[in-house]
Design a protein around this nucleic acid. Structure first.
Lengths: 208, 208
DNA sequence: AAGTATTTTCAACGCCGTGTCAAAAACTCA
DNA sequence: TGAGTTTTTGACACGGCGTTGAAAATACTT
């Protein structure tokens, strides 16, 4: 049973572990994760394949760590919009734009983390946590807006999930084939779509 | 280079090939495709592992065939709604319900086909064909409705893609954790969501 | 600074699934 | 029946995975 998380901070090991995560983030950008070999990841961090297993149980576990470190950044984007006042179209668009920018860079592993049917249990755990977090935050906001009479009906939880899914899949599509999309147009349409989806407003009305 | 598609119909081989597809459809229901071994698929169809390669180049190629055969059924559902008259909520809901029923059964490989980040090139080809078909049909309908002044704006192609993606992801979510969703509620909300997304109508108006 | 304990690295091993091959078996059609 | 094709098979080699046990490097103690 390798990959022991030591209680204290043994400096050297932690450095290597972080190097592994950083290296992985880079490697995962270049090719489908299923085609990345553990040997490659280890090499990118300057250790041998068997050395890898001292830090992580598997490729999936490392991926989970990579995804995990993405939380902070993702949270910033999300909060940007969630914190704004109801139906602030500009703020929402800014939040989406930030997300799209992230996806354009790290789309490969983001897709793996959020859209793949069966990543390992490790990734699954992280994924659930992140998606849940996003949905509950969003959902709470919708609920709040609903009390203010802004929304149009439907379970907040469901609406939140739809909005989040819509966002992810569209970003994923853009990553898969950037040439097929005009970014500005996409962001505009997506912004309006979400507003319409949740609040039933047409592009014109900034506050009902 | 195995898996030669013979020009004529050599009866025996075709039978086995179909048996392979049918068996695969069943096997793929039971466990994540990445965990299905070729040996298993061959065995389920009554041949040995190496025999498998006479018919398909790889597991992915077989999956592609499985997906391919799903077109007919999927088309029926899609057509049901696309053929109906503008903003017919009931028809749309019926179409979605049919789709959900399918996903509840074959969700596992449907996810693999439509949401996985990097299925093999074989699956990719089929996927693109199917998604494109769905989107163009939907898109054409939106365009038609737009000329009738029913829609709310935004590129038809984008809106179609969003609607299709929304549908797939929600169905996928239901498959992943059926207990988390009330089917009727989901279908209602999803129907309204799509109508709102594309046509900007609120649940009440059946025809503007 | 030396001795001890712990952390880190490595090379070698066995396992499992894949894909290929050439030869054998089954089938088709005269 | 026999020549030709189609289908099936067992054996082989390859590559990646995960483990093990021992050596090397590092940290800790006095």
């Amino acid at each position: 049973m390798p990959a022991i998380k030591s209680r204290r901070a043994p400096t050297k090991g932690d450095q290597r572990e972080q190097a592994l995560v950083d290296a992985a983030r880079a490697v995962f950008r270049d090719k489908p994760i299923s085609q990345v070999t553990i040997d490659e990841l280890a090499g990118a961090a300057g250790i041998t394949r068997s050395g890898f297993y001292f830090y992580f149980e598997s490729k999936q576990a490392l991926l989970a760590a990579v995804v995990d470190q993405g939380i902070a950044e993702a949270d910033v984007e999300l909060a940007e919009w969630l914190g704004s006042d109801g139906l602030d179209r500009a703020a929402l668009r800014r939040g989406l734009a930030a997300g799209l920018a992230r996806w354009k860079v790290d789309g490969r592993w983001l897709r793996e983390a959020f859209l793949a049917p069966d990543p390992g249990p490790d990734v699954m755990q992280v994924r659930d946590r992140l998606v849940d977090k996003g949905c509950t935050l969003f959902s709470a906001r919708i609920e709040r807006d609903a009390r203010a009479g802004l929304t149009v009906g439907g379970s907040p939880a469901l609406l939140a999930r739809m909005a989040v899914n819509l966002r992810s899949t569209m970003f994923s599509d853009v990553y898969a084939d950037p040439s097929a999309y005009n970014e500005d147009e996409l962001l505009d349409t997506l912004t309006d779509a979400i507003l319409r989806l949740v609040y039933g407003v047409s592009p014109g009305d900034s506050a009902r």
